[in-house]
Amino acid sequence: MKNVVRIGVIFACFAAFLGVSLTPETSAQKRDKFSHATAGHKKKDCNSCHTLPTANWVAARGFPDVADFPGHVACFACHRSDFFAGNKPAICAGCHSNPGPKGSARLPFPVKTRSQEFTSVFPHNLHQDIIAEAAPRRRNVAVAHLVKASFAVPDDPPKPTFNNCAICHETSKAVPKYAPRIPASMQPLAEAAADAFAPKAQFFKEMPSGHQTCFQCHYQGVKPFATDCAGCHKLTTPYMEEPVAKRYSIKFDHNQKEHSVRDCMTCHVRISQNADLKTLVDADVPFITCVSCHNDKITEETKKRTASPEAQQPAFQCTYCHAPAIGRFPIPKSHENR
């Protein structure tokens, strides 16, 4: 009887092993096997596979771009035998939705669901220097002089659009995914209190996600050229892109009356010094820039925080700038030393 059980267990294990190893890979799994980081691929120049622009750019993008997978010729030199491996060669799944000799339909390029292999480097400091000059004021204009009164609609010349931060970062039209930017080195003092606060779309700014903005200047003529992929993109450990806006002060409204009349550079100080966002450790907006206007409110809240343990009460959670998810943390040094 024992032997029958043993044989049964062994058989079950073998069946399970076969089941796992013979389960056909999904096309997504096969596709994700492609790696730019293999020794063979790293030897290649980007342009030996990717052409700029691809033939479908007009329909796919509306501007010259790499809007499609490389052609067969790019893979053939090294992977010729893979193309003839069975009825549904695995290599086809890299680009085609229905792998096989008759499946010509291609996946949308780039495949958004697959992991990213490249990071992008954008030196904000250089761009600040060349495009983000002051929007000059018109001079020699008389002020407070009534020259002429008229009820006609004035035929003013259109206001010039200056290229500054807004050329890439427009105000968001919809609320993006957002989350608190939890301080890594601190422990919260309490559970976050209930909070019904919801930011509006105008609290956020867009970020360029494709080549369109970059190519306006870098398509040709200004380095890095559009054909020099490595000029902006660097190979990295594959990661899944998480477009989540992480904030310390989620209650900051860019369009609030007093904020909208300010220059981006009034608060975004560190960005003008930064050559690569990945090296930015501290918040781009230093606390010093908030204090000049909001010191009274900040003082009021820090006093409440200090007073709460003295009065044997739970830690006061700062909510003037922060959601409770952040407002429950200890007061950082930057706030104490103001």
Binding site: Q128, A134, M265, V269, T289
Partner: peptide, 17 residues
Amino acid sequence: VQSSMTDSVSVVAIFLD
């Protein structure tokens, strides 16, 4: 040591840290 840019409203450059 550092470089910093003035803004166009308060015309102030801040050198940090």
